[in-house]
Amino acid sequence: MTNLLTLTRMRVQLALRNKMFFFFSIVMPMGFFFLYSGVFAKGEPRVVAYLLGPVLALNVMGSFWGLSATLVMFREQGILRRFHVTPATATDMLVSSILANYVLTIPTIAVELFFARVIFHVPNLGNLTSLFMLVSIGTVSFGSLGLVIASITNTMQETQVLNQLLWLPLIFLSGATIPFTSLSKTVQQIALFLPATYLVHGLKNGIVNGFGPEKVLLPLGSLGVWFLLTLFLSSQLFRWEPEAKIGRRAKLLVAATAIPFVLLGLWEARYGRVVAEEQVTMQRVENSDKSDQPEKPKESPQSTDPSKLNNSKQHQ
């Protein structure tokens, strides 16, 4: 336990001294926040609230970049092997990086929520418990994805290529950049196989619809299972030595991390709950856009359009 805490503290300290961290984990997410809220939403509180889910999701998902790159760098430079001759374990190394990333991500998220309220006058941040749980489980599960990426790539170059390959679909197909409802039917079906889609969807439901944790169980549960699976796999595939290369069988084993979302995607393709909910949420925002004047930003989303609220309940 002590090992875990001291390693976590080291990782936090190192991140705070790293210019790259400042850029990728603070400047960029804040940039996205102001771009979405100020430019895309034109400062319109209800649209800002709708886009808050995607903005937070981008921030949360970015976790895998930093964690994979740092772990591979530590391995390549022979830093990990120095820890290998101490009683510190692979689990200590992995869990401490997830904890450090969590500790560093939450404040940015909190500041974004604070700015949404204060600068963009978002009347209601929805259900804060759901929001906190989704952000938490999202941060640790995408962080854990980074650890798996680090364990299946042999060099920093490979890591960065894989990061890019994953990042693009995660942001463009999940509703994090292009609204889910604007995606074509086919693309929506593909998106249903991505963990990012459920994260964005859950956050939107929590913020815009004010859904409590019991109504966002699908994203919470699927990301939770995914977290445990990726963490387990990364501990199994962990390599201390720079020259230890990953075998082909181990790479196949990693395909197992896709299982939860393959199953979920198939189930969703059949029942279409997420697609329906997304449409309802979008309609609510569009309708309230028309009915709400920017001068009256204080009304809560629940009170604006009871008929739509009923509508959304029917779809659950």
Binding site: N3, T6, M10, Q13, R17, N18, R81
Partner: peptide, 19 residues
């Protein structure tokens, strides 16, 4: 082998001692 670039000397000693 190496230690992280931005780790300070005393921090490194204390970190390893903590194990």
């Amino acid at each position: 082998t190496a230690l992280p670039d931005k780790l300070r000397v005393m921090e490194a000693l204390k970190l390893f001692a903590s194990f």
